[in-house]
Amino acid sequence: MKTKKKILFLALPALVTLLTVFIIPMIYTFIEGIATDKLDFYIKFCTDPFYLSILGNTAILSVKTTVLCLILGYPTAYFLARTQSKIKSALLIATIFPFLISAVVRAYGWMVLLGSNGLVNHFLMAVGLVDEPVKIMYTEKAVMIGLTQLLLPYMILSIMSVIQSIDSNLEDAASSLGANPLTTFLKVIFPLSAPGVVSGCTLVFTLSMTSYVTPRLLGGAQYLTVSTFIYSQVKTAFNMPFANAISYVLVFAILLFQVFSNSANHYVSKKVGGV
């Protein structure tokens, strides 16, 4: 009991900082909003199909980004976890290297590539796949591409760390028992890596739900997500109370998701014995 208290003491500086600069102001603005406008702005948001469609689109975008990151990230994570290559550490650094470049710079990079006059369209037209430029910029596609590139390392690192902890003898054991590589993956590796998949998906989904820079630059005013819409309410509509209300809609949506992902995490961890 005494040691438990002592350990809590270690968390105190961070706790105090978070409380004073983050949690207390948040509770304050939430209560202030309700006190002055009651639930008016919440009702406004929840009854208008346009506003709801922004929330829905953001959620769909985030799911798509998460799935794309999982598809691209899983094989990479498996390779990085299992490779005996001498350049393994170099590959690992390459994985987290994008973190060194700001999201703004990367978004501008994508603008160069994805614009109607960009490299991708030049290439598509040169090989004759399309006759006129495809519209990628300022659509869901552009934002999804940008977010996937931004968030892929989180997925790779989450899954990789779990796969590294799976005894490679288990794969040999499955194989000696007659399981081909696909069966070994489906029955042994994937179930055991599930905790990493859950935490990777949670991270990527949450981060893409709340991301601002990438959708702002690649989606512009034509493709709105919740966070860019909040910004437009603050900067162009000057409707602070509404922006405040939408912020809390987003916060609660994410809290709800966290509750769901926590129980998913709990379930898979229990299933694989806390590996």
């Binding site: 003898n169 040999d172 054991a173 499955a174 194989s175 000696s176 399981a179 590996v275």
Partner: peptide, 20 residues
């Protein structure tokens, strides 16, 4: 012939039981 077609049983030093 790949391992999964050999019908060779192996017991691992660390057992390698499937924990799940």
């Amino acid at each position: 012939i790949p391992a999964y077609k050999r019908n060779v049983g192996i017991f691992f030093q660390n057992y390698a039981l499937f924990p799940h």
